[in-house]
Design a protein around this nucleic acid. Structure first.
Lengths: 81, 81, 81, 81
DNA sequence: CTGCCATTTTACCGGC
DNA sequence: GCCGGTAAAATGGCAG
């Protein structure tokens, strides 16, 4: 790898190009998401609110039992586990 | 600002040094926090759990009415606001 | 809540599900990127530096040299040359 | 829950409050840093580049040149010289 | 020394 | 078109 133009250089280029290809794919997906939001907005939905709804849906499974966890947490912290 | 060693350079140095001073202060506060956690740990409390408790306390004021907000959100998203 | 506003509820759900599907795709691409970086790391490349290079490549050549010059300028002003 | 475990509860509360106080201090310092960056920006400095320079200054000189050399190496390998 | 979690930084998106 | 805030990514630090 000390030789910038040697074999290692080819490996590096290969990795970098793979990453760049994936970045491109990712960007496409993001564009599609943007399109969906734009379409929704065009039908009168509030994009910001939609994002929040989606975020909350993502969270929901975890903190479903958040209250119980909190109780356990306190008990644990107080050495009552 | 084109002249690296000129007046602008002095301004830059001044800003950078102010930031570095503040970083130092911040590091001190962080160290104190570390000490508190260490002390708590020494008394048998679980640091990780304490962190979670503190984080939850920070969140509490916000999502106190999270459910209501969610409802409002849906209504808003559905144009029933 | 499944049909809070009748038809609009269905539309909302549809949009949300499309977004969630795209988010899933995005996550997969991200995982692949992670794999590539891991593989590069396994061959001795410095992932952090790789990221930096990739970020630079993203910039238009003009912006890139501008940025690099600015960095050099700031370094000079601070005696880090 | 005020004294879930008697004495231990008081200790816990005490620790938590100390941490919260320190968090408040930390937040203030962070705000001041924000102000400094904003001021610099107002005078035409590039905040992002400033951050980069500050990060470099944090590194021991040895590590710094090592890092910079590696970056140059990678750039060469990718024809970005 | 590796993986995880917290913090910090970067990039994005919507509003003005 | 810029700016501010917000979410994603990346770096760094800690624990095991």
């Amino acid at each position: 790898m000390a030789d910038a133009g040697g074999v290692a250089g080819d490996r590096l280029r290969s990795f970098v190009e793979r990453i760049e290809r994936l970045e491109e794919e990712k960007r496409e997906v993001q564009d599609q998401m943007k399109d969906v939001f734009a379409e929704a907005k065009g039908e009168g939905f509030d994009v910001k609110v939609m994002r929040q709804v989606i975020r909350l849906r993502r969270l929901r499974p975890n903190d479903r039992s958040e209250l119980e966890e909190l109780l356990d947490l306190y008990k644990s912290a107080l050495g009552m586990a």
